[in-house]
Simulated assay, not measured.
Amino acid sequence: MSKLNLPLEGGCRCGQVRLKISAPPILTMACHCTGCQKMSASAYSLSAAIPADAFAVIDGEPVIGGLHGATRHYFCPHCKSWMFTRPEGMDWFVNLRPTMLDDASWFSPFIETFTSEKLPWATTAAVHSYETFPPMEAYEGLLQEFAEQAVR
């Protein structure tokens, strides 16, 4: 990964919703689940877990889309870009779609999840792969390993 020059700003495809991050991610991911495939219209979705206090919507008003469940998926109300997710019960971070940032050249997925549902040809540069999500006891080590290798 290349150097991360913070703060970084970004926005949806049409530019009506803008956001800003002021801290590096605590983990980066690619998810191969069929839900992410459908929501991203791609082989997988990309995420950068950003500390919640380092994430801000600075212009516009994103709307909730996707499944409209306890985990909230936020989209631009105009162009419908899937911008970020606030996972249920994990208020301390926001899962940002890193390609919403004006410069995503630093991004590389550190883990990939739901490889049990991946398309046969889909590959990533992830260091760790999981058939579903990593077991809860693995996260501490993953976060520490990512922090040691992370962009700054």
Rank of each mutant, 00 (worst) to 15 (best):
M83S: 04
R18K: 12
E148M: 14
Y139W: 02
A126L: 06
G69R: 08
T28F: 00
C31H: 01
R72W: 02
R86W: 14
V151K: 04
P135S: 00
E145W: 03
I111R: 00
F114I: 07
T28C: 00
R13C: 06
R86C: 03
S40W: 06
T99V: 14
N5V: 15
A54E: 03
I64Q: 14
N5T: 13
T28H: 00
S108I: 15
L4W: 11
P51W: 07
P120C: 11
S108R: 06
D59V: 06
T28K: 00
F133T: 05
G60I: 07
A56D: 00
G69F: 10
S22K: 03
P109K: 09
S45V: 15
L101S: 06
P120G: 11
W82I: 05
I111L: 02
A122F: 01
T99G: 09
V127H: 13
R97T: 02
P135A: 02
G11Y: 12
F84M: 07
A147M: 09
C31G: 06
I26Y: 02
A125V: 07
G141F: 11
C31T: 04
H68D: 11
M100L: 09
G10W: 05
A23F: 02
T113M: 10
R97D: 04
L119C: 10
V17W: 09
M90L: 10
L119K: 10
M136E: 13
R18S: 08
Y130W: 15
G89V: 03
M100H: 07
F133S: 10
K38Q: 07
L67C: 09
S45T: 13
Q149T: 15
D102T: 01
V94T: 13
C14A: 12
I111G: 01
M90W: 04
C12R: 08
A49L: 10
K80S: 05
H128L: 08
M83N: 07
E112H: 05
F55C: 03
C31R: 02
V151D: 06
D103N: 11
W106T: 04
P98D: 08
G65M: 12
S47Q: 03
G60A: 15
E9L: 04
H73V: 04
A104H: 06
P25N: 03
L119G: 01
T124W: 01
L96G: 00
A54R: 02
T123P: 03
A138T: 00
P134R: 00
G35Q: 13
M136G: 08
T132N: 13
W92R: 15
D91S: 13
G35M: 11
C14K: 07
P134A: 07
A43Y: 12
S108D: 14
E140H: 10
L19Q: 01
R152A: 15
